[in-house]
Design a binder for these strands. Structure first.
Length: 103
DNA sequence: CCGATGACTCACG
DNA sequence: CCGTGAGCCATCG
């Protein structure tokens, strides 16, 4: 058997490039469990700074961490434009072939 | 086993 | 755009 969901999520998170963002739902889908976006959030919460947690946003590109300031700042440091608590997925959304994590 | 929980998401008003 | 409610599902006590 292969990696479990949590290991897959960590692996995927590590490949999000600086200056790009992904959503909880997108990560869950890539990890093969589209209904588990809440669990992706759980991984991020417990992983601390070991993972690029700031590059993950809620649906539509909204910052969900509370307070949102720190995440917004980290994103800006890598060139991501944050308007209010929003990031345009159109411009900064990470896109990758699902086949890249097909195993 | 049961109920509560959560960095979620979507539909609806 | 902002709730609200329902659906979701592993984890915890």
């Amino acid at each position: 058997m292969g990696m479990d969901f949590y290991a897959r999520v960590r692996h995927i998170l590590e490949s999000i490039p600086s200056g790009r963002v992904a959503t909880y739902g997108q990560i869950a889908e890539l990890a093969g469990a589209p209904k588990r976006s809440r669990h992706v959030a759980k991984v991020l919460k417990s992983a601390g700074q070991a993972l690029p947690w700031h590059r993950v946003l809620g649906a539509g590109g909204k910052i969900r961490t509370q307070p949102p300031d720190q995440q917004a700042q980290l994103l800006r440091l890598e060139g991501v434009l944050v308007s209010g608590e929003r990031v345009s997925l159109k411009q900064f959304g990470w896109t990758i072939s699902p086949l890249a994590f097909a195993d």
